[in-house]
Design a protein around this nucleic acid. Sequence first.
RNA 1: GUCCCCUUCGUCUAGUGGCCUAGGACAUCGCCCUCUCACGGCGAAAACACGGGUUCGAGUCCCGUAGGGGACGCCA
Length: 473
Amino acid sequence: MTVVTRFAPSPTGYLHIGGARTALYNWLFAKHHAEYGSGGRFLLRIEDTDRKRSTEDAVAAILDGLKWLGLDWDGDAVSQFTMAGRHAEIARQLLDEGNAYKCYCSPEELQEMRDSARAEGRKTMYDGRWRDRDPADAPPGVDPVIRLRAPHNGETVIPDMVQGEVKVNNGELDDMILLRADGSPTYMLAVVVDDHDMGVSHVIRGDDHLTNAFRQIQIYHGLGWEVPQFAHIPLIHGADGAKMSKRHGALGVDAYRDQGFLPEAVCNYLLRLGWSHGDDEIIRRDQAIEWFALESVGKSPAKFDVDKLTSLNGHYIREAEDARLVDLVMPLLARSLDGGLAEDTESRLAKGMAGLKERAKTLLELAESAEIYAMTRPLSLNEKAAEMVEGDGRAHLTSLRGRLADVATWSHEALETAVRTYAETAELKLGKAAQPLRAALTGRTVSPSIFEVIEILGRAEVLGRIDDVLKDG
RNA sequence: GUCCCCUUCGUCUAGUGGCCUAGGACAUCGCCCUCUCACGGCGAAAACACGGGUUCGAGUCCCGUAGGGGACGCCA
């Protein structure tokens, strides 16, 4: 049997990190079955029935986020709103079959019902006052809502692939609204109908939907439809232990992109947040597809830890192709240097990327360290670097300038030999000579191997940068 | 308040009754490597929420307590 999963975000904002993980798990589960089972498809449905809160921008942001993460969906994204007619038709069917009824309560009346129930410590449920009332009693001029005639006795159980069997007494559940007074479907009805119509076999979503599943199962039963497999994955919590919500500082995936994270790092991190495969930490996508199973999803919520994401990101940066990193860094450099890039920045970066990427944990750090190849003369030295080219440092620099000018073959081996020879003759530790050089050539006290930097910058630029420093002061 | 769920190092987790003196990863701290910073290597510190059972034996099973979370909309 083919596995069909779906990701069903409501377009009220960006794709936040929790949603991204839900999408990842759905995608992985479908891909796993596509490659190792008897087929799998991953669908995308935009839950835009709330017209007031849904926006085009949000839809675009969500699609963008998924694409950035590399989570491609099968077929076109489905707009739930466009299915409203179908939803109403099903509500009508339920009504005709006696599994639903019209309720003429006003929103105010319901609010009172809830308020007094809570005040008295009772469950805040609809009391079913129109469940068996004669429709002839309907107040004139009031558009009714349609409610499900839910069972009052027995229990409803969710066989959940992550949470196990979760049960509730039907007495705890009230008759939910399926169709609003204006004829539009509620979320509960719409999800069930759409999942059924789209042939969804596995509903993998956040744990905050677990209690919704009870009600949805009742709708499936009312319709006589087969209930899909459920898998409610634990939520991601913020540092304070509460659910990561948008108003809680949860960031959109675009924010992580802007902070210099690679999509593969974000995916790897998200995958490991709540799921594990023994002691494995670095898990490439193809490996994830092979290994992913709902059985190994944990049951407890996890806190988001940027440090670990950052560490993973450093790993993936080191592993990334140099050319790709150059492409990612160039626009960042253009921005930070305000367009004033050295002419051969790109070719220098191509040569220097191997040394650069080893030292960066984010693309932002990478771009910052890459500035040494992009800046035009004269460089401005930071405070510590400026100190380093004073006094002894200045003297060494002067000597070193001469030695470098005389190096026959401009290779980092020959350059290193030249500098080492100088240090030995002057009876210096290599660092005493290397640091002033680094300061003069990069304006900083930290950089890739200074010999590599010298080679890449080229003789003219190197001598020029040294002269700039020796000139002033 | 009611219902549902969760509980192993600071964090993510391994662990499915004996292999646990509880393993790995991130973070932290030391040492090594070293032209700086990283990377890498080695090492340290760090956890089974608590209380009862069941069992020859419990981190692993059961019950309770505490703590945390989620859901209780004509939102999704």
